[in-house]
Simulated scan of single mutants.
Amino acid sequence: MISFILYVNDGDGVRAGDAIPVSVTRKHVRNLNLRIHRDGSVVLSMPMGMPAGRAQEFLDRRAAWIRKNVDSRLKRAAVQDLLAGQGASTYPLWGESVEVPDGGKLTLDEVDEIYREELARRLPETVMWMESQVGAHASSWKIRAMATRWGSCTPKTGAIRINTRLAAYPPECLSYVVAHELAHLLEPTHNARFHAIVARAIPNEPEIRARMRKPPVG
């Protein structure tokens, strides 16, 4: 077997250092086979004689699907790994590890409730600042537990939804997601104008996006 690394780029404003690495192995197979593991790693098996350019084209065509599934797996694992079994004596909050008092343990539902309360407390101030930076105003904000997205927006109504588990990550991650969704009120697609709007509000956007693909603490 021959192994090497390719990087998938969705062509949608992905900045340097934000591409997804893919471990590629040449095998005696007939077709390209793509797998995304629980830890977010991406593996591609390809026929022995196939040019690497064909594999790169294959990855780039599926970039949006790959990114969505990588993010989904990382978000599920990030909190659930810490709360496996009978619960957790520590949990991530705003990028720091918090210890449960008196040696107690919390279930995933209990931690999610903490996240909901924390996000409700911090969100108004973050929204006020980011609205001034982006130049857009949402009609409503809702906090929800979402499996595959950090946030979502309905441009026609101006409604924005934020994932409760953002409270596990450093506060700048919340600011980025708020700015990202607000930018969609001005530009629904992920084109160059959209990314320029986000970049004005969040100059270190690439670093934050990379941070959000890692576990909350560490």
Rank of each mutant, 00 (worst) to 15 (best):
R116K: 13
R38W: 11
A19R: 04
P92L: 10
K27D: 02
E205P: 06
W65K: 08
L166D: 03
E117K: 10
Y7W: 07
T189V: 04
G11F: 02
D12K: 14
A147R: 15
V178Q: 12
M48D: 11
Y169K: 06
A210G: 02
A52M: 04
S72F: 02
V134G: 03
E57W: 08
R76C: 05
A147C: 00
S23T: 06
V134C: 07
D12H: 09
L44A: 02
L108S: 08
L83V: 12
M130L: 06
A78G: 15
N204V: 11
R211Y: 02
S23I: 00
N163K: 01
L186M: 15
W141P: 04
A199P: 00
N204G: 05
Y91F: 14
R149H: 02
K156V: 12
R213P: 00
I143N: 01
A52P: 01
E187F: 09
A84Y: 05
W141Q: 12
E187W: 06
Q86T: 12
M146R: 04
S72W: 06
A167G: 13
L119R: 03
P124W: 15
E117L: 10
A16V: 04
R54M: 09
E187N: 14
V22T: 01
E96C: 10
Q56K: 11
A199L: 09
P216S: 15
R30S: 15
D112A: 06
I5D: 05
Y115C: 04
R61P: 00
T148I: 01
V98S: 07
S132P: 01
G53F: 01
M128I: 04
T107S: 15
V79D: 11
D10E: 13
F194A: 06
Q86R: 09
E205V: 03
S139H: 04
P101I: 13
A147D: 09
A179C: 10
R161L: 03
R26E: 13
A64F: 06
V43C: 00
A196K: 12
R121T: 05
L32H: 10
T126Q: 11
P21A: 08
G49H: 10
P155Y: 07
A196M: 06
M48N: 13
G103Y: 10
I5C: 02
P203C: 08
N9D: 13
D60W: 14
A147Q: 12
V8N: 01
L166W: 03
P170W: 12
W141A: 14
A210L: 14
K75Q: 12
L93R: 05
V29G: 03
D112C: 08
R165F: 07
A147M: 01
Q86K: 07
R15H: 02
